[in-house]
Structure formats: structure tokens, C-alpha cells
């Protein structure tokens, strides 16, 4: 177990290092001069040159990379060109919204998928199963931004139950929750459809196994057999997909936050890219990558807790 954790941690660090190189390289290859973006096209060549020197843009690439990484390790991601405040401040301000959205989206996804997937497997080949699979197919086919627009049309414009977008801030908890309902639904319905299919097929596979027959022979109720014997054994592929889905959920927030005008990291990264705000984009891409890698790390550890057989092997 200790060996497993050490190996995983090394992998974790190496992945982030690789990501940082790629991010830095891509941002430097991209056309566009940050100095020009900051000062505008009417700035004099002298002023531009001074700013470039001040920002360190004239240093060799590897020096710039090391400077950036060194500062980032100390929590200093530089100053945003467009917002004129430290990037770390921007992140701290906007992270809670995106994290809340991603976590609530994931929780709803998992609940939806487990209930529908296990229910479909239990009714294998019956109308309930077909219904769930039909809805899941639609869910997979529908892009989340389009679903968001439909939700806004129905619940905000026509029915007026929920705000169409925007975020009142955490000081208004009821308003904050109301503002997050539709974005969460837009994320979860699409991801839940994928996960429900995985859950169903994994549960069907387990239901054929001998120990499920043993559980039935022990006189347990259908529900008990399904949730206590089938589901835990069906979890390994489900957890794998949940790990992958969390990544697409985090990136999905970029689209969703723009559709619902939520001031989160997704919206911030979108704006920073349009503004050629290099320090902000670099920091945010690193942050998104770190979140995804961390979640995958957690997933690997969860496997060991689900299946005692893995503990012997790691």
C-alpha cells in the first residue's frame, strides 16, 4: 500500500510537470503580443519594448519557464494583464463557484446514474429498461450548452421559476443555490446518461455471477441483493468512468458558466484567452490539470478501498 502511494505520488508530480511544459510551450507559440494587448495598438515602440523587458518577455524561453514555475510553486502566478490584480486573487475569488458547480454536478450525476442504471439492470429486457436506455441515448446525444438553453427557455423564460443566469454571490445562499440548479442539471443530465449506461452494463455483468445467486439463496430481498451485493461489485468500472467524467465536468463548466454567465473559473479562462492574458491562462490551465490529475489519483486510491483483492496486489 505504501509502495502504491509512493509510486502514484511520483506519477502525480511528473504528470503536472509535463502539463506545465506543454502549457507554457503552447502559450508561447500562440501568436499575439501581451505587451501590445496591454498598451493597445497606439502605444509607441519604446513603451512596448519597456513593458516587454519589465514582463521578462525578452528573456530566453527556458529562463522564462523556470521563473514562472519557481514563482508558481510559491503561490505567485503573476499579475493578470487584463484585470490588473494578482492571478491568485482571481482564482481564490472564483474557485468556490466552479468547485461547487463541479461537485454538485458530479453528485447529481452519480445519484441519477446509480438509480437509473441499477433499476434498468434489475428490469433487464422489460419496458423500464428500454425507457432508461432510450432516455440515456438522448442524454448522450444532446450537447450540454443546447440543453442549458432549453432549460433557460422553459424554467426561466416561460415558467419564471429560476433565474436565467448570473450569480448573486455566496452572501445570498438561497439565491446562490437557485442560480446553480439549472447549470447543475445541464451538466448532470448529460454525464448521468453516460454513467447510467455504464452502471447498467456493469450491474448486468455482476448479476450473472455465482455470489449473487448465493445472496438470493440466502433469502435476501431483491433490493438488498441489488444494492448490497450487486452494486458494490459493479462499482469498479463505474468509479473509473466517474474519474474520467469529473475531468469533462470541470472542462464542461467552461461552457456552462458562459451560458449561465456565472463568474467562475470557466468564464475566467474564456475571457483570459480572448484577452491574451497569458499569466491567467497558464495558471488556470495548470489548475484544471491539477484538479483532474488529483481526482484520478483519488479514484486509484478508492479502487483499493472497494476491492480488498487489489490491496494484496499493490
Amino acid at each position: 500500500m505504501a509502495y502504491f502511494l509512493i509510486r502514484r505520488t511520483i506519477g502525480f508530480v511528473l504528470t503536472l510537470l509535463t502539463v506545465s511544459v506543454v502549457v507554457f510551450a503552447v502559450m508561447n507559440i500562440l501568436p499575439g503580443d501581451p505587451a501590445l494587448t496591454i498598451l493597445g495598438i497606439e502605444a509607441s515602440e519604446q513603451a512596448l519594448e519597456n513593458l516587454r523587458r519589465q514582463l521578462g518577455l525578452n528573456d530566453p524561453v527556458h529562463i522564462r519557464y523556470l521563473n514562472w514555475i519557481g514563482a508558481a510553486l510559491q503561490g505567485d502566478f503573476g499579475t493578470s494583464h487584463s484585470f490588473r490584480v494578482p492571478v491568485s486573487e482571481l482564482i481564490v475569488e472564483r474557485l468556490p463557484l466552479t468547485v461547487s458547480l463541479a461537485i454538485s454536478g458530479m453528485v447529481v450525476t452519480i445519484i441519477l446514474a446509480l438509480v437509473l442504471g441499477v433499476g434498468a439492470a434489475a428490469n433487464h429486457g422489460k419496458p423500464g429498461d428500454w425507457g432508461v436506455m432510450f432516455l440515456a441515448q438522448i442524454g448522450i446525444a444532446v450537447p450540454s450548452f443546447w440543453l442549458s438553453i432549453l432549460l433557460i427557455l422553459l424554467f426561466a423564460v416561460t415558467l419564471g421559476w429560476l433565474p436565467p443566469g448570473g450569480f448573486p454571490g455566496w452572501s445570498d445562499p438561497v439565491g446562490a443555490v437557485r442560480a446553480l440548479i439549472m447549470p447543475t442539471a445541464a451538466l448532470a443530465l448529460v454525464q448521468g446518461a453516460v454513467l447510467a449506461r455504464v452502471t447498467r452494463s456493469s450491474a448486468l455483468e455482476v448479476m450473472r455471477l455465482d455470489y449473487v445467486r448465493t445472496a438470493r439463496a440466502s433469502g435476501f430481498s431483491r433490493q438488498r441483493v441489488l444494492w448490497r451485493h450487486v452494486l458494490p461489485n459493479a462499482l469498479v468500472p463505474i468509479v473509473t468512468i466517474v474519474g474520467l467524467q469529473f475531468a469533462s465536468l470541470v472542462t464542461g463548466t467552461i461552457v456552462i458558466e458562459n451560458v449561465f454567465s456565472l463568474p467562475g473559473l470557466g468564464r475566467l479562462i474564456f475571457q483570459s484567452i480572448s484577452n491574451r492574458d497569458l499569466p491567467t491562462v497558464q495558471a488556470l490551465v495548470m489548475l484544471f490539470a491539477a484538479i483532474v490529475v488529483t481526482v484520478n489519483f483519488i479514484v486509484d486510491v478508492i479502487y483499493v478501498f472497494i476491492d480488498p483483492r487489489l490491496k494484496a496486489r499493490t
Binding site: 448465493t214 438470493r216 439463496a217 433469502g219
Partner: peptide, 27 residues
């Protein structure tokens, strides 16, 4: 129905199967 049978399984009639390797919940 299944519901009636369930009351008798384990309490009146119990069963063991061929593959002891596969018949126990591995978790």
C-alpha cells in the same frame, strides 16, 4: 411469488453450489 419463496430460503431450505471460488461475495 418470489416474496413467499424468500421467506423459506435460508430458514427452511438452504443451498450450496458447485463453485466455492465464485459463490462468495469477494468484497
Amino acid at each position: 411469488p418470489e416474496r413467499v419463496w424468500r421467506r423459506h430460503r435460508a430458514r427452511d431450505v438452504a443451498m450450496i453450489f458447485q463453485e466455492p471460488m465464485a459463490a462468495l461475495n469477494p468484497l
